[in-house]
Every structure is written in structure tokens, then in C-alpha cells.
Design a protein around this nucleic acid. Sequence first.
DNA 1: CTGGAATATTACTCTTTGGTTGTGAGGTAA
DNA 2: TTACCTCACAACCAAAGAGTAATATTCCAG
Lengths: 109, 109
Amino acid sequence: MKHGLTDAMIEQVTGLFGALGDGSRLRILRTLLDAKEPQSQGAVAEATGLSQANASKHLACLVRVGLVAREPEGNTVYFSPILPLVANICNLVCGHVTDRVKKSYRALR
Amino acid sequence: MKHGLTDAMIEQVTGLFGALGDGSRLRILRTLLDAKEPQSQGAVAEATGLSQANASKHLACLVRVGLVAREPEGNTVYFSPILPLVANICNLVCGHVTDRVKKSYRALR
DNA sequence: CTGGAATATTACTCTTTGGTTGTGAGGTAA
DNA sequence: TTACCTCACAACCAAAGAGTAATATTCCAG
């Protein structure tokens, strides 16, 4: 498969990567991955140390780009990561990052 | 493999995704992928329509996060994408984006 | 050595965006 | 109804970043 990165796609792709390029949102994603069940917004805010309003904005961003699913239930809203995309991206990037760290570690011996 | 997103990694990962979350840098990456050989900075600037200084900054960013290789040769500097990471990321994300588009297309019929 | 070409860097502007505070809209329970 | 809880949204501030213009720096040709 060619990369097929058309002009029309670039806007979408920048949105996705822009959403992933923030520490708070990555921490939210991590807590959602660690939890076995969907988490309420309050639980996410408490686990990550974010304020309520801040967590709301970041979760809305993650939902907008399609990384997280949103499921209202009664008064509270539950969020869960959309697998396997998130897991795949994590594996890919974590592998790359650890490779780079190992390489720069070997470089200074 | 678990996602293994440690606190120490998050800074690195945000750097990587932050680099990918910009249209100009994605266009640079695309021209580097389309070209079969390493491209000089001037060639990249011309192909993407970026100014010289701007292309220099974006290419430096891509090199810093390890997505692009930099190879000076005489007076000019040649850049090439680091495969297969870039190709893998493109396949993953492009697939996800097209899936979303297809899904929203089916949704309004 | 001199002129020119390719890249890096600095200073500046302007837009974007993360974070906070305050408020309002639903939903639930007494 | 009232009280309360969960979340969304607006306005605002501050920091980060994309873009430009001008100025080095380095290298090669003549």
C-alpha cells in the first residue's frame, strides 16, 4: 500500500496527530487504556490530576478526532479508547522512542 | 505487548506527535516519501511552497524527533524519511481516516 | 581572494491553544 | 419542588508556535 497522503487527508491527519501531541491528552489516553471499563469524566479528571473543565475539553478533542468513544448514561458520560487504533499507535511509537533512547545510550559509551 | 506508556516516555511521544501534527511538516514528509532519493532543503522548499527559513525550521524539527535523516554533502544538506516508521504511521493513520470518512458517508444515506 | 549559492539563526509578529474561573444545562434523588 | 451531581460552554490569560525578513555562516567556483 502506498502512503496515499492526499491533500484532502492532511487536514484530518494533522487533527489526529495534533490531538496526540499533548501530554495531558496522552495521559488521559493512558488511563483509559489501563482501565478495563469505560471511565466517567470525573474519574479521568481525578486520575490525571486535570481540572474538570480541562478534562472535558481534552476528552471532547479526543472524541472529535475519533480516538475515544463517548457514551452518555443517565447523568454521567463514559469514555473508552477506540481499539485497536490506539494500541497500534502506542506500540509503534513506544518502540521507536525506546529504540532512539537505546541508540543514544550506546552512543555515549 | 502492553502499551508501556511511562511518564518518562510521554515527553518524547508528544514531541513526535507534535511534529506530525502540522500540515507543513506533513507535506514535507510526503514530498520526501514521494521522492526516491534524498532531497536538498531547497528542493523541499520549492516542492512544498515554503520559504527557505521556514523549511529549514520544519526540517530541523523533523530531524530532532527522529522522523527524517540529515546528511550534509558539501554545501547542501540532503534529507530523507526514516523508513519504515514513517510508512507505518502513514498506513495506520490513513487507514483510520479513510475508515472514518467512509463511516460518516454511509451514515448520511 | 571574491562572488555567489545553500543553509542556519535571530528577532519579530500573529495566531493558536492549554489552562483557569465562572456559569449554565441536564439528570437524579430526597 | 429543592438540592445536588456531572458535564458542557463561555470568556479570559499566558505560553507556545508558525511564518516572515534580515542577517550570519559555510562551502564551492572562478
